[in-house]
Design a protein around this nucleic acid. Structure first.
Lengths: 239, 239
DNA sequence: GAATTCGTTTGCGTATGCATTGTTGGCAGT
DNA sequence: ACTGCCAACAATGCATACGCAAACGAATTC
């Protein structure tokens, strides 16, 4: 069920706006620019002027400017006074930061989920994602695996009941989107990660918060270290 | 050394802009509005229109609007289409979320700090904060204690070397600023918290990441639970 | 030949006007 | 008296205009 060769899923689903769509020009500009950045249509390092973007999006500078401010606060671009906005590249150091944050937050999400009164309820989404990962692994379909991986991680963050935590996970997830795409075709087939996801899910369903926390933490530490050394060894300074 | 009865410190120091500030009107509007919110000059629930704020700040609507967007993304206000911005109240549920996030992130910061090559170096700021806390505790000076507590936590986040983690800690710290101020005069003197901070600092200086992590986590879990039950028992629905 | 200075251009920060949309209050009908 | 509809108003989202400041280039001088 891989959607495409490069873009594993519609990036719109990444933002926190859910379903409540507003046709406001600023919101559209924000969504479109974010999608362009995540899809690598605006490559990292690209410098884009307000007026240029306004022309490209068929809007005036005002809503574009508001979108730029939002993107800057999301950590996707930097606004420098006379040079417009610059799409921020992701270096190995950034990936280290991001994985440290995820290593903190995601085990907490798993723990919270396992601590609910009915831990096994409402995990259908994660079950499905886990199954899709295993299936994609068997089929050696990396894009499909990445899509399922994303569904698992974002689903976990959203289900844990802590909106702030979910927002933070989504934010760094988006920031690292391009880097994950880059490493996707370089790393060995993620058999181990797939199995670890399954075991975390089992611990959650069994209502064992401490075990879910510990398992997830170990998974994140290992996979993060793996990914970072992969980026460092690949020799690219940034993505 | 308490600065004032209610506002323990200048809220400007809370934002992540450091020193390099430009006198742009939008930036000033953002800083001033944030300060007003954190100082409770704009009480939670307050509805403020663009034009009204522009008049109050002596600016036009455009920079005020940009400031509002930034504040919304920082989780301090909500913008509702025809009612201007509303200062978000903090409920017990929000404090639970915030303390869960801090329980994840801050132990990681301590761990990272303890993992550096020279763990004991550069801790002067934390030493100082810890000393100020002990001194304030002995003098039963709660505002001074709160100020030192803030210096310790934000100092730790900034020193850990992970800018994203530091930004997230600061963000939820700002969100919970008013609630902490509210509980400050209700809770018993934080003797236990003071001692726990000292022990965390010792573990960091000794270069024991795992112990620093565990100690900090336990501290956060306990003090968070204490604070939340205090808010819940106080009967106020929101702050 | 190189450096410095001045002028021009371009991008941006801010202000303001306009059109759209939502809300509220009043009036009428039941 | 209550409810529903309509109209007027107000706030906002967006476009555009204006002035300033910085950067680039060219020319002149040392």
């Amino acid at each position: 069920m891989a959607t495409g060769p490069v873009s594993p899923r519609a990036p719109q689903a990444l933002d926190g706006e859910g379903q409540g769509r507003q046709p406001t020009a600023a919101g559209q500009a924000h969504a479109r620019l974010k999608a362009m950045i995540l899809d690598n249509l605006l490559p990292p390092g690209a410098q884009l002027l307000e007026g240029e973007l306004a022309l490209r999006l068929g809007l005036s500078r005002t809503p574009v400017r508001e979108a730029m401010v939002r993107l800057e606060q999301e950590g996707l671009v930097a606004i420098t006074p006379r040079h417009g906005m610059r799409v921020l590249p992701i270096a190995a150091a950034d990936m280290r930061e991001i994985y440290e944050v995820l290593t903190s937050l995601e085990p907490m999400a798993a723990e919270l989920l396992a601590r609910r009164p009915e831990p096994a309820a409402g995990l259908g989404r994660l079950e499905q994602a886990c199954g899709a990962m295993e299936q994609a692994l068997a089929a050696q379909d990396r894009p499909a695996w990445a899509e399922a991986d994303e569904a698992f991680h974002l689903g976990l963050a959203e289900l844990c009941g802590n909106r702030r935590l979910a927002g933070m996970v989504m934010q760094v997830w988006e920031q690292s989107h391009r880097a994950r795409l880059f490493t996707l075709h370089q790393r060995p087939l993620p058999a181990r990660s797939t199995a670890e996801h399954r075991r975390v899910l089992e611990a959650i369903a069994a209502g064992e918060p401490e075990r879910a926390h510990a398992l997830y933490r170990r998974h994140r530490r290992r996979s993060g270290a793996e990914l970072i050394s992969l980026i460092e060894r690949s020799g690219v300074a940034w993505l």
